[in-house]
């Protein structure tokens, strides 16, 4: 959209930023049931405040394809009447939205003070050993991603391991890690149902 002949816009001529960009990814549309869930949610906000549903929408994207892609960001922006830049702004602010491909199960170990004092580093090492990957990596089978996170808000039950943004495993000892991983591998999400949130929920 350059209007000036002396200012022809040729991105190749100029220096590109080294900033890590979102993957373009596959063309993205919400699956009908997720779209319906989002539309249902949108009825709770005034029509001109659709953008309020952004976090929910981004969670739905992750539910559908595990992580955010540029195409998904555009799609969400289109539904919520936001520019892709605004969606990216929110998405990159929050650590629970993954900007690159992650494994089926994302294992997040809290490393903030309480957990660190209670031996979170040892837990990370054990998980790293069991999975054969360093923190921040995804295993070759695409099953697990191991991440270190900041405070997960369960300091009284440190150290805490969160699986898939959802399930807490508390007072994890390094020797429990092998069993935890095997359990998730064998039973999938059902393996996570023992954590306190599930128990304490009415």
């Amino acid at each position: 959209m350059s209007f000036h002949p002396l200012m022809l816009y040729d991105p190749e001529r100029f220096q590109r930023s080294e900033r890590r960009l979102l993957e373009e990814g596959e063309p993205f549309t919400f699956a009908p049931e997720r779209r319906a869930a989002l539309d249902e949610l949108l009825t709770k906000y005034p029509p001109d405040r659709k953008r309020s549903a952004i976090l929910a929408a981004l969670y739905l994207v992750q539910e559908q394809q595990g992580y955010l892609t540029a195409n998904a960001v555009r799609h969400v922006g289109g539904i919520l009447e936001m520019t892709p830049a605004e969606v990216e702004d929110v998405a990159t602010y929050y650590v629970m939205f993954f900007k690159e491909k992650v494994g089926k199960h994302v294992v997040q170990v809290c490393r903030t003070l309480s957990c660190a004092l209670a031996g979170a580093e040892r837990v990370t090492e054990a998980l790293s050993h069991t999975l054969g990957i360093a923190p921040g990596e995804t295993d070759p089978s695409g099953m697990f991603t191991l991440l270190e996170f900041e405070c997960l808000g369960a300091c009284d039950r440190a150290p805490v391991v969160m699986v898939n943004n959802e399930d807490w495993h508390e007072r994890v000892r390094p020797e429990d890690c092998g069993r935890l991983v095997e359990d998730i591998r064998a039973r999938g999400p059902a393996a996570s149902s023992g954590c306190h949130l599930r128990i304490e929920r009415p």
């Binding site: 590109r16 930023s17 900033r19 960009l21 979102l22 540029a70 960001v73 936001m82 520019t83 892709p84 830049a85 605004e86 990216e88 702004d89 990159t92 602010y93």
Partner: peptide, 19 residues
Amino acid sequence: PQINIVDRGYGSEIATFQE
């Protein structure tokens, strides 16, 4: 709005979507 802030805290930077 074409300009956003990506990341947060110490890593924050001014950017446009996909540069």
